[in-house]
Amino acid sequence: MKINLYLLSCLLLCSFTSAAQKYITKNGHIRFYSDSPLEKIEAHNRQVNSALDASNGNFVFKVLMKSFEFEKALMQEHFNENYVESDKYPDATFIGKVLNFKDINFGKDGLYNANIQGKLTMHGISKEISEKGTFEVKQRKLTGKSKFNVVLADFKISIPGTVVNNISKSIEITVDVTLEKANM
């Protein structure tokens, strides 16, 4: 009985420690930007799920493709139906790690550089990526920012010949997520 109680206490303590070190948000922001000679296209998604485990650096985010908002309805329609095929591939995910998470003092306000590596899955294709970003610790919140480029062909996203000059082959992705300590 004593052993069982001891085990239960350990489990509760472990789960509490794990939750206390997890940072989450459901309102992260990802911006998509294409700059081609004929047209500039920009879309925003403000419903990004993201979680960071400060104890091991594990970092994930999940994005619903239909949540991207474009200025023009036609662009949004083409994006969902022709390019990312959001009915077939409804989300994009990143599962990776902040490699230098031990350099980040989550208890002290400051701006920290981050090296992030992991698997980005989009349009049913997974690709290893390695990018740089920053984490800012401020008033117990953690703001992660990164800007990188994604080559559409790497994810088998093809652009029809008629609009090939309207969309850049490489899309700029800007990630801006403010994570808060999880109360789980």
Binding site: Q47, N49, L64, K66, S67, S86, P90
Partner: peptide, 9 residues
């Protein structure tokens, strides 16, 4: 409805 990401959105 834009889909399911743990939550229905």
């Amino acid at each position: 409805c834009t889909g399911f990401s743990g939550d229905v959105i």
